[in-house]
Design a protein around this nucleic acid. Sequence first.
DNA 1: TGAACATATGAATAATCGTTCATATGATAT
DNA 2: ATATCATATGAACGATTATTCATATGTTCA
Lengths: 98, 98
Amino acid sequence: MTDKIPELEILFELADLFKVFGDSTRLRIMYTLFDGENSVGEIAEALNMEQSTISHQLRVLRTNKLVKIRREGKQIYYSLDDDHVKKIIEMGLDHVLE
Amino acid sequence: MTDKIPELEILFELADLFKVFGDSTRLRIMYTLFDGENSVGEIAEALNMEQSTISHQLRVLRTNKLVKIRREGKQIYYSLDDDHVKKIIEMGLDHVLE
DNA sequence: TGAACATATGAATAATCGTTCATATGATAT
DNA sequence: ATATCATATGAACGATTATTCATATGTTCA
């Protein structure tokens, strides 16, 4: 029994992770959170996009443990969950910027 | 004039880059190339997938400058084009493996 | 030149996914 | 309780994309 099957499963998970980074709206959301936490409304306003769109994408980010939330009254503040997020984006930027 | 517009364009490019990493077939191809160059046929056999599928995806990888080629007779050998490729994948693995 | 092999390409199909619209849930304050 | 504000959710639509099949291109060798 080889160890290639577990590797295969991990590569599937890895693809799923990169898929999350592969959308400009989600990237912009994460980039917005580089400076610190923001509420859903603040993010929507900053990106000039519908609240619903942002909310849907925040759920994707949260499902993948890339952002976490803090509740305060009516608002929900989102922030990056992990140092990896910044690192992965910065590593990608290195490549894009040659 | 703010510098947010160029950043926006860059984030679009960045999303396109991550999209390339967001497919398990392409990830498996790149992972196969961690050990060194392989021909199209070798990759297809290693992944047990159609030659055509691999060829299509290699073109995506090549268009995005993630792999480069070396011709030798009838075969074309593909290899990773860039250290960033390995680094980005490894960074993602860090996250997936907790 | 023609046969055999390796790789690339184009069209078609099926599946995935982002956005929008409408509405629901949840929280606060009067 | 109810009105208001913030966020979430579900369904539907359109667009993108991975794979397959069939075929084309390109290379070697006899």
